[in-house]
Write a protein that binds this DNA or RNA. Structure first.
Length: 144
DNA sequence: TCTCTGACTATAA
DNA sequence: CTTATAGCCAGAG
């Protein structure tokens, strides 16, 4: 039963990490996987979100976990079995102020704008110098 | 118990 | 740029 216990811990960690994503921003499955200490299991992160209960009475549910803010590393909403779910996620993101562009192939690309990513991009992206990296020490935050 | 699938990603060609 | 491949491992049948 230790296995199930570990699995529960993993689910818990994933949901907690997703809750850390600020409003109006997104991150990738891989990033969540790294946050929970298992950078090689981005797929399982997807499994966790798929199993995210809709019951609002549950500790983690569709209402308190911003599952919609999790997309794939390509900056696109991962297409899953049910296209309706993808569209649903796109709608949810739009509602949060995130701009989603529909590609010719029906792929829903998230417009990161300057930088809509939560903490930062993957190491590869960092090395590429694509990180905005707030210049200066001027710290300012505005939230509605 | 085995097999197949999948809300992923990095790397190679 | 696109396509193929190899890891990863939790569910569902």
């Amino acid at each position: 039963m230790a296995r199930s216990d570990e699995a529960a811990a993993f689910f818990h960690a994933v949901y907690s990490a997703v809750q850390e994503i600020p409003h109006g921003k997104v991150t990738s499955y891989g990033h969540i996987a790294k946050l929970v200490g298992t950078p090689q299991r981005p797929r399982q992160v997807g499994v966790c979100l798929k199993h995210l209960p809709s019951d609002t009475a549950a500790r983690f549910n569709h209402a308190n976990v911003p599952w919609q803010r999790v997309i794939n590393a390509k900056g696109v909403i991962s297409p899953r079995s049910q296209p309706s779910g993808t569209l649903n996620q796109a709608a949810a993101l739009e509602a949060e102020g995130v701009v989603v562009t529909a590609g010719a192939l029906g792929e829903l690309s998230v417009d990161l704008g300057e930088f809509g990513w939560f903490p930062r991009l993957l190491p590869s992206e960092e090395a590429a110098g694509l990180v905005p990296q707030d210049s200066d020490d001027d710290e300012d935050e505005d939230d509605e």
